[in-house]
Design a protein around this nucleic acid. Structure first.
Lengths: 125, 125
DNA sequence: CATACTTGACAACGGCATTGTCAAGTTTCT
DNA sequence: AGAAACTTGACAATGCCGTTGTCAAGTATG
């Protein structure tokens, strides 16, 4: 059974298009939680001139990683921040090492195909 | 003021020599806490033929990293485990990137000299 | 032989993560 | 025009986590 975080790519994954309620719905979290992630510095959605948050596909993927790390692996938000910082410093997608090699469970192993990878992106932070 | 985790090196940092009360005293934690770290798979001290734990210098350093990550950076134990696993997979001391570059605070910046680095070691796990 | 080790277990307490809700004001969309 | 959704800051409930503390019973050590 194939598990994937990937959603069909829009034209430009960096383009901010989703307001907070839509982004929350896409990743199945409460809008309040997305605000907390932003307060924690884990995701930085764009803002319109009237200060409305707009999330891009990259932001969505980043939140999906946060959810994977916190819900499935039990990492707290401080730990997620450190992991993201390491990834930025090393300039590589080190978190994929956790996902690609299916260390956690059979489900993540099943998701090892190329299009199954969630992609935390430093560029949105 | 210079801050360092490094203690004077014994002859062989891999040699298990400290019983749990001594190791706990060295790193200023409760022996109960060291047992919890072991249960969490974060550190694996050697055992004597009569099942007494013996910690090596490498184990001590590893615990010092755990303490730094949990106490100073707020990472929980699941997060520490993921960081250690990444380090093993990448085959490099990625956590030093956090420490060497003093991203956290002035104290860690002050400790940036070569002999100030704590060294998490995958070899003790 | 006192002390320290082992195991498994329960508990207190402060902190964390998520969700929920509120008020007041602004913006958006129908 | 007005309902709905957005913003901010704030407080709270609840379950979980991390650390320490303690216990019992048995074994090992100095």
């Amino acid at each position: 059974m194939r598990v994937t975080f990937r959603r069909p790519d829009p034209r430009d994954p960096g383009r901010p298009v989703y307001v907070i309620s839509v982004a929350a719905s896409i990743v199945s979290v409460h809008p309040r939680t997305l605000r907390i992630y932003e307060d924690a510095g884990l995701v930085c959605p764009a803002r319109t001139p009237t200060n409305i948050r707009l999330y891009s596909e990259n932001d969505i993927r980043r939140v999906m990683w946060i959810r994977h790390l916190t819900q499935n692996l039990g990492v707290n938000l401080a730990g997620v921040r450190i992991l993201f910082e390491l990834e930025e410093r090393l300039g590589t997608r080190i978190l994929e090492r956790l996902y690609d090699e299916g260390v956690r469970d059979a489900e993540t192993a099943a998701a090892a195909s190329a299009d199954a990878n969630p992609e935390p992106s430093a560029s949105s932070a």
